[in-house]
């Protein structure tokens, strides 16, 4: 028996918005510790890793490990039937072929119940090595979304450079080019870009903006985002989900042909 209660539907809604464009179907792996999901996009270029800790949810129980195969678009549609503030319970019996959703209104005067068919999903689980990154940049998630959106109007790829001066995003296209630089600034003045950079080595890497655009769908989950980079390894983009967990994205770089 698996059952997780969220005080508000909004966290689940936002998690689905942050994953559904990248993966169609995914196994939600539920254990005594919590809920984990790891899935690659169909082209095997990016990966999303979600972790929600059971002990930080309103209530949580999971006696036996269970893998729930979920069509993310269907789950998104069902969650749209909940108001943001509805208390939300998701439940599945061991060996169940459905997941049950219960939405309770704030005043507890309305209860909705939906069942969603589960799927058998063959997914390839990747082992992600522990990595010491050369550069980790913490910045506003809104600012990161803005930069990705702006540079997508110029080109398909972004070159990210991190050095002791700060971080620079650059794009080139047929019609022109653009760069956005943010200075590392430890002061917390109003209006400053307010980024922190933890740097051991300068790095310069290229990435497809198309995937970064998918990642920025997680911005409503957190005011901040962290970008971790090392030469010749995938970028890691992390959004914390309050005290409950995180959503991490990995993106393989564009490399010299």
């Amino acid at each position: 028996m698996f059952e997780a209660t969220f005080n508000q539907a909004s966290i689940l809604k936002q998690v689905l918005e942050a994953t559904k464009d990248l993966v169609n179907d995914a196994n939600w792996d539920c254990s005594a510790e919590g809920i984990a999901l790891q899935a690659m996009d169909s082209s095997h270029v990016s990966l999303v890793s979600l972790s929600l800790r059971g002990d930080e949810l309103a209530s949580y129980r999971c006696e036996n490990q269970i893998s729930l195969g979920i069509n993310m678009n269907t789950m998104t549609k069902i969650l749209k039937c909940a108001e943001n503030n509805d208390r939300t319970i998701i439940r599945a019996d061991d060996d169940a072929d459905v997941m049950v959703f219960v939405f309770e209104s704030e005043g507890r005067d309305k209860t909705s119940k939906y069942e969603m068919k589960l799927m058998d999903i063959d997914s390839e689980h990747l082992g992600i090595p522990e990595q010491e990154y050369s550069a980790t940049v913490q910045m506003s998630s809104k600012e990161f979304s803005r930069i990705v959106r702006d540079l997508s109007t110029i080109g398909e790829n972004v070159e990210i450079t991190v050095d002791k001066e700060g971080i620079t995003f650059g794009a080139k296209g047929e019609s022109g080019s653009g760069t956005v630089s943010l200075k590392s600034n430890p002061s917390v003045d109003e209006g400053s870009s307010n980024i922190t950079i933890d740097l051991t080595d300068s790095v310069k890497l290229n990435f497809a903006l198309r995937y970064l655009t998918f990642f920025t769908k997680a911005a409503p989950l957190s005011d901040n985002v962290s970008l971790s980079l090392s030469a010749d390894v995938p970028l890691m983009v992390e959004y914390a989900i309050g005290d409950v967990g995180f959503i991490r994205y990995y993106l393989a770089p564009k490399i010299d042909d």
């Binding site: 270029v45 689980h125 990747l126 770089p253 490399i255």
Partner: peptide, 14 residues
């Protein structure tokens, strides 16, 4: 020209 790397080049199958 740069080409898109795949994740399999970096992460092994678990």
């Amino acid at each position: 020209a740069k080409k898109q790397a795949k994740l399999f080049s970096f992460f092994g199958k678990a």
